[in-house]
Nucleic acid binder design. Sequence first.
DNA 1: TGCTAAGCGAGACGGTACGTCCAGTCTTTTG
DNA 2: CAAAAGACTGGACGTACCGTCTCGCTTAGCA
Lengths: 195, 195, 195, 195
Amino acid sequence: MNDVKPRGRPPSTAAREKALAAAHAILMEEGFGRLTVEAVAARSGVGKATLYRNWTNACELAMAALIDGVPLAQPGGETGLKAALTAQMQALVQAFATTRGRQIAMTLAAADPESEMTRAFRNRVILSSREAGRNLIIEAARCGEVPPPADIDTLLDMVYGPVFYRILAGHQPLNAVFAERLADNAVTILTAARP
Amino acid sequence: MNDVKPRGRPPSTAAREKALAAAHAILMEEGFGRLTVEAVAARSGVGKATLYRNWTNACELAMAALIDGVPLAQPGGETGLKAALTAQMQALVQAFATTRGRQIAMTLAAADPESEMTRAFRNRVILSSREAGRNLIIEAARCGEVPPPADIDTLLDMVYGPVFYRILAGHQPLNAVFAERLADNAVTILTAARP
Amino acid sequence: MNDVKPRGRPPSTAAREKALAAAHAILMEEGFGRLTVEAVAARSGVGKATLYRNWTNACELAMAALIDGVPLAQPGGETGLKAALTAQMQALVQAFATTRGRQIAMTLAAADPESEMTRAFRNRVILSSREAGRNLIIEAARCGEVPPPADIDTLLDMVYGPVFYRILAGHQPLNAVFAERLADNAVTILTAARP
Amino acid sequence: MNDVKPRGRPPSTAAREKALAAAHAILMEEGFGRLTVEAVAARSGVGKATLYRNWTNACELAMAALIDGVPLAQPGGETGLKAALTAQMQALVQAFATTRGRQIAMTLAAADPESEMTRAFRNRVILSSREAGRNLIIEAARCGEVPPPADIDTLLDMVYGPVFYRILAGHQPLNAVFAERLADNAVTILTAARP
DNA sequence: TGCTAAGCGAGACGGTACGTCCAGTCTTTTG
DNA sequence: CAAAAGACTGGACGTACCGTCTCGCTTAGCA
């Protein structure tokens, strides 16, 4: 077993929470560029050393702050793949068509791609909706609503990738119509699979 | 007309070129995080003041350095939309499946979205391939090869967005098969338009 | 002979005058620390190259600007060495108990002591009053009013040095009483010379 | 009382000492003009921020470096005001007839006259010898060696001012004979007081 | 109850880069 | 051909954060 009681004062969860709250507030109010370790320390009242004890740099702290609060698409009672996918995409687009969306993209771009925290952030924030979509499609295929997809990963990227593409490039708006069209086209690809 | 001869010493194109070359080298050798104005000045022998006279910050300098050197998809003599699109996507994926790809994504994420330079960078580096794809599709529709697309913007985002999605999230590799599948699915959507 | 007609556009005395005027204004309004070549160029409309053609650096330009305008003690019709010396010292103290006094001290301290311009500045601005005092004393000795001084240079330094000492150290004010006491003590030293 | 324990890491005296030593070395080897904050940081290994935490600019740093190391005139066992004063003046002249003398004058001229550090510098470096001289004279008057001086401040300025005058203007050398003559004249003024 | 280990805030430390200012030089066009 | 205009390299400025390191003070489990 590995539950040897550690000696000494235990790490303070209060400090972690205050730090995350301050980081989140700075991200929303001032943006990723202002999210410095020093600023979080000053705003939260947590010492810099404590921050470095919990996160290796400001970027990881940002990711930790952003992980909480991304609303997971609740299943919903939609009937039919198209309706369910459309609902999920609209929720996603709404969640990312905000300040937070761009902050998330910037954070991910700046993060060390090898880091453990980056992996967790990707899975929890970027790819969780993609996995939800995968489940919808697999379920629909299991029910015989659509044929089993040939390359589901590419398909998923074609549904979820455009959202981040528009956040990054900003050439077109993120809105409900866009979400619907993405879902539509996904179903088109699925059903047009050669029999 | 507004072609009054400017007085004083004209800006040195040599300085600009040296700066861009140094910036490009740093980007490729050390990454976007090391592209500081100071480093470019030191490496290029160009004064910091001259750099600030030409670009407002290191990020714009990075964009300027990245604008040159992105290979535009040459038209190619492919016959048929699917072949042409596949060829273009494979070239794009090859171009971005490198260090440069991630650097470009990071640069764009870090850039001020309102800046003039950012707009130019987006158009020249991120969206130029998208416009090439648009031309391919419009031409195919004009020839009657496919029906005229209902929402070509969403369709284009579904083709080009996934490339940047994979660069950013890194959950799946960028390779030729992926490029082909994207092109395939795009044609599927186009041809499946309601009869 | 050396009067070969110079070819080309003759040096502009107007440029020199504008430069000196601007330098003087900056010295009085903003102080010696703000007297940069760039500031003089900007304020006077004279090109930097022209300034460097006429003065080797900002400090020399400052000295040139300060040379003009120091009021030479007019002989005055005072009778008697003590009265004449007192009058002269009071005029001097009045002239240096201003912004200009401190600027002059700073300029001299910052100047290259070997430079030609520094020598001229010293002679015209710092030492001219000392020479006037020397003349007063020599004249008085010639008239038999006082014995011929043993070491007139030390005596002169004891009269004029304290003025700059107080400017530099600022431990005591420069005023008319001080000027009078200096003159008194000088006469005391002169008359107390052992016969 | 006001002895609240300071929180946080205490300032490092080692850093201060290293900085002062480096500043002093630069002053002596390269002169006041080369005493930049950057140079002190580079030479001492102390961070720039630490320097700015302790001194507001390079000039104050220079003054701090010059304060230490000015040899205070040791009382000496001279008998008689004239001998004592001569000895003190000769020591002073010897101390200032070096590179240091001019550096000190330049530093004082360049300093902000209002600053706390400037005041300390003046008192410790410029005026300390003057106060020593004041004590000699007061003591001699107390012993009945000379009459009590009418205006001791002016007298002191006439003794010590000429030293800085010669440093600044450089029209005459600083040497032992000059020191002796200053002391002589001072005693002459003192003893010639109205009977 | 006291000991001891570890986390805590605060804040100074050596650094790196920032963006600005100015020095002094060089290269244009204008008078 | 000199003056003016102004861009150039170079270097110091003073600031902001970085990530590390003492400090003195909790806050716990262990003795």
